[in-house]
Design a protein around this nucleic acid. Structure first.
Length: 888
RNA sequence: GGACGCGUAGCUCAGCGGGAGAGCACUACGUUGACAUCGUAGGGGUCGCUGGUUCGAUCCCAGCCGCGUCCA
């Protein structure tokens, strides 16, 4: 006998271990099985599971379990990302906390060694947390972006792109993160709006004949100014173009140039130009061939290119000093408060500086072209489709991708320099040496590039590098292109776009056929979760409290096309209750001898009740199958919830009770067999979303009746394929009538406050012969569920019987002695008014000749029928109301 | 400033050309032997505003108002 509730705490670890040990997570070996593959968005090794991971991985698991049951060779390939900056940060912090020497003192090799040690010790956290969710990843294929195989892939791609001239070295402005001492890509820069000032500085003309005023939010950069620009059409300055100002403090003469960049409407219309420290100024500098004076070092301190008093100062100290100096010189023309956006490093949180350095770039524009085409052609489809716009928007305006990082943790760039600076880009040092020897004519000492690659460079290869590329493995042939990628919209640029580019370039095919973009999980009030706000929900805590299945069902049910998903504990609790409901329905069936019967054929069931639930099961199977195939997760969850709670539990079980307790042995046996069959099908349909509870029930009911055709785990059972022919409209109509008669009767009783203990008969006044037959046959059911003593077919209602109309049939409950006549009058009047409103609307519509002429025939017909029904019902209730008023 | 998206029941959200829906919350009643992590019933919405298209608009189009996100 089942316990009273499901106990996730003991069941989950047991079942997960059993699944894993059985090898069920690996794809079927059957070569005939259609492949279905998903690569996991690799979480950072440093990570721990947050609610976004829980959502993302739940959806992947739902899909992969569904497809596995559908007989596909389903592979969900897991792994983790080395996450350059994040990991380096964690280990550095740990070194500091342990009172150890810093990374720099430790030296590169020793530090990297420390990171690997850390990874061995703590890197598995998130992977184990995924197990707690029930994720059916094939752990035997788990990969890490710094694995030997993946590193080989990275080198091959880098060298390949270099030789095609799609990777190149360039001196340009980068976003420099002074905290981590590295360049970062545009995507890693966060624009934050902050309070600041506009300082207006006067630059005296060199000949002393006047001044020109420029405004800046970054005064310290003036030390690197190499021009002042004005708009060529700005008449205020036409005469000054070509002349020079003497740069205060520095004393350097710099030209006044004409360029389209300054906006005459803004400020004074004149702009100071610092080509080495501003992206716009850099462009101006290029156009006018201006000197580029770098005034900062890697720590964002001022370097030796500035006057002595400023050297070594931090940028912000220098800012103040420059302002003070201008004031002292009498050249400060004003200060305004302003709010402006300032770039910050997304990891470090410090202000990043545009900084002139040599870096490696990928020609993203060239790689983007085929990637754009592939989505246009539908080779890869985004779900929801609207995200394609985001993808296109970025891809069509793509900039060169800076891929070098001045970090130690990552894939070292496979470039070696000779003594004269000549670069050899090869997959191995050996090969680089060989090339060098050939070039120089003798063995030559080479120095490897110090930099590592952007973490996203290796992530971009994930869909094929994890399958073994560059080796031509069986997995690669079988599972590439992968089928579906499930990820968040925040990394469409970082990751999805780059996988598209690299996949197409190196594999000649898109990396995935479909990209499902999942929502961002927010708190119950719709606020973004953040540690600062203290509203972060730990998914593992939720799993502890409600079980993994409840959390999974919640996340699945809340996944519609939206961008946000507001998670509340109440919601999870509700779905935990849903699991309990199914658990107890199974318990009920078990207590009532429901067991699989030898040779049971759902199509051959005789009792309308059984035929009805068989049809409902088939309908549900179809709805869930369609929904999951289309990533309509909320619809799948809704169909399951509705079927299990509102059909199976609320009606099937209730209506089956009298049969199960009755004397008709044949009917009882059929019902027991049907219930067992329906439950088995239900467990299969619910399994992808609630794997633990369903697997446990599957196991606990394994011995009830004849053995199942599928003897193993539910997770490997075949998915239900139930034909439409199992739906029986006649059975639907019968059960529909019974359900409505009971529901409406209950409504009458409650509204009129008929005591629950009262057991009047239910009178059937007007009904078709078919309806009468159904109602008479269902008398015991109706008796129990509506709490009536009998169902009687009568000609006319006795005085004071309360009528109601359902499916065109008229019923009455003789409960006059219990009720307040005025309450009944009010009830009838309300019903009549309701019908009147409906009638008015429909009649008006049908009276419109345009409607009748132009609307589709079936719509017109449907409206006519509804009008007739409403009129009939109203007439009956109106008659009752009149009788009542006559009595009173 | 540009792009995208959202305003539907108290809350969170589905629906998206022909009868306004769900969960939760709320109210009343109820231990009928699966389940109180329950059952039964009920109240509650000019579907942001203004126009347009249409026989018909919550749904399509335009404008406006309010909110959010991303990119400058």
């Amino acid at each position: 006998m089942l316990s009273k509730t499901f106990d996730p705490k003991t069941v989950e670890p047991r079942l997960y271990a059993a699944w894993e040990a059985s090898g069920a997570f690996a794809p079927a070996e059957d070569p005939a099985a259609e492949p279905f593959s998903i690569v996991i968005p690799p979480p950072n090794v440093t990570g721990s599971l947050h609610i976004g991971h829980a959502l993302n991985n739940t959806l992947q698991d739902v899909l992969v379990r569904f497809e596995r049951m559908r007989g596909k060779a389903a592979l969900w390939l897991p792994g983790t990302d080395h996450a350059g900056i994040a990991t380096q940060m964690v280990v550095e912090r740990q070194l500091a906390a342990e009172g150890n020497i810093s990374r720099r003192d430790l030296g590169r090799e020793a530090f990297v060694e420390k990171v690997w040690e850390w990874k061995a010790r703590s890197g598995g956290t998130i992977v184990n947390q995924l197990r707690r969710l029930g994720a059916s990843c094939d752990w035997s294929r788990e990969r890490f972006t710094l694995d030997e195989g993946l590193s080989a892939a990275v080198r091959k791609v880098f060298v390949g792109l270099y030789k095609e001239k799609l990777i190149y070295r360039d001196k340009r402005l980068v976003n420099w993160d002074p905290h981590f001492q590295t360049a970062i890509s545009d995507l890693e820069v966060e624009q934050r709006e902050v309070d600041g000032h506009y300082w207006h500085f006067a630059y005296p003309l060199e000949d002393g004949s006047g001044e020109i005023v420029v405004a800046t939010t970054r005064p310290e950069t003036m030390l690197g100014d190499t021009a002042v620009a004005v708009h060529p059409t700005d008449e205020r300055y036409t005469k000054l173009i070509g002349r020079a100002v003497r740069l205060p403090i520095v004393g350097r003469p710099i030209p006044i140039i004409a360029d389209e960049y300054p906006d005459p409407e803004k400020g004074s219309g004149a702009v100071k130009i610092t080509p080495a420290h501003d992206f716009n100024d850099f462009a101006v500098g290029k156009r006018h061939n201006l000197p580029m004076i770098n005034i900062l070092d890697g720590f964002a301190r001022l370097n030796d290119n500035v006057p002595a008093g400023y050297r070594g100062l931090d940028r912000f100290a220098a800012r103040q000093k420059v302002v003070d100096e201008f004031e002292r010189l009498g050249l400060l023309r004003g200060v305004e408060k302003t709010r402006h956006v300032v770039p910050h490093g997304d990891r470090s949180g410090v202000v990043v500086e545009p900084y002139l350095t040599d870096q490696w770039y990928v020609n993203a524009e060239a790689l983007a072209r085929p990637a754009i085409k592939a989505v246009e052609a539908g080779d890869t489809v985004f779900v929801p489709r609207a995200w394609e716009k985001t993808y296109f928007e970025w891809m069509r305006n793509i900039q060169p991708w800076c891929v070098s990082r001045q970090l130690w943790w990552g894939h070292r760039i496979p470039a070696w320099y000779g003594p004269d600076g000549r670069v050899f880009v090869e997959e191995s040092e050996v090969e680089a040496r060989r090339q060098a020897e050939e070039h120089y004519g003798r063995p030559t000492e080479l120095r490897q590039d110090e930099d590592v690659l952007d973490t996203w460079f290796s992530s971009a290869l994930w869909p094929f590098s994890t399958l073994g590329w560059p080796e031509q493995t069986r997995d690669l042939a079988r599972f590439y292109p992968t089928h579906t990628l499930v990820t968040g919209f925040d990394i469409i640029f970082f990751w999805v776009a780059r996988m598209m580019m690299q996949g197409l370039h190196f594999m000649g095919e898109v990396p995935f056929r479909r990209v499902f973009i999942n929502a961002l999980v927010r708190d119950a009030e719709g606020k973004k979760m953040s540690k600062a706000k203290g509203n972060v929900v730990d998914p593992l805590e939720l799993v502890d409290e409600y079980g993994a299945d409840a959390l999974r069902f919640t996340l699945t049910a809340m996944t519609s096309g939206g961008r946000d998903l507001n998670l509340s504990r109440q919601r999870i609790e509700g779905y935990r209750n849903f699991g309990t409901k199914l658990w107890n329905a199974t318990r009920f069936c078990q207590m009532n001898g429901c067991a699989r019967a030898e040779g049971f054929d759902p199509a051959a069931a005789k009792a309308p009740l059984n035929r009805w639930i068989v049809g409902e099961t088939a309908r549900t199977a179809q709805a869930v199958t369609l929904a999951l195939a289309e990533c309509e997760f909320d619809r799948a969850a809704e169909a399951l919830y509705r079927f299990i709670w509102n059909r199976f539990c609320d009606w099937y079980v209730e209506l089956a009770k009298p049969v199960l307790n009755g004397a008709d042995q044949a009917a009882k046996a059929e019902t027991q067999a049907t219930a067992a069959w329906a439950l088995d099908e239900t467990l299969k349909l619910l399994h992808p979303v609630m794997p633990f509870l369903t697997e446990e029930l599957w196991g606990q009911t394994a011995d009830l009746g004849v053995p199942r055709a599928h003897r193993g785990f539910l997770m490997t059972a075949p998915w239900p394929q139930l034909p439409d022919s199992l739906v029986d409209p006649a059975a639907d109509a019968e059960i529909g009538l019974i359900v409505e008669a009971i529901s409406e009767g209950r409504s009458v009783r409650q509204e009129l406050n008929v005591p629950p203990a009262a057991r009047p008969p239910l009178l059937v006044l007007e009904a078709t012969s078919g309806q009468r037959r159904v109602l008479e046959a269902a008398a015991p059911l109706i008796g129990q569920l509506l709490r009536v003593s009998a169902v009687r077919i009568v000609g006319a209602a006795p005085e004071g019987a309360i009528p109601y109309v359902v499916e065109g049939a008229t019923f009455a409950l003789p409960v006059a002695e219990f009720i307040d006549l005025s309450a009944e009058r009010a009830r009838l009047a309300k019903e009549v008014a309701g019908h009147s409103g409906e009638i008015e609307k429909l009649a008006k519509k049908l009276a419109n000749p345009d409607f009748v002429a132009r609307a589709p025939e079936e719509v017109v017909e449907e409206n006519r029928e509804r009008l007739a029904e409403a009129e009939a019902a109203k007439a009956k209730l109106q008659a009752a109301l009149s009788r009542l008023e006559a009595v009173a």
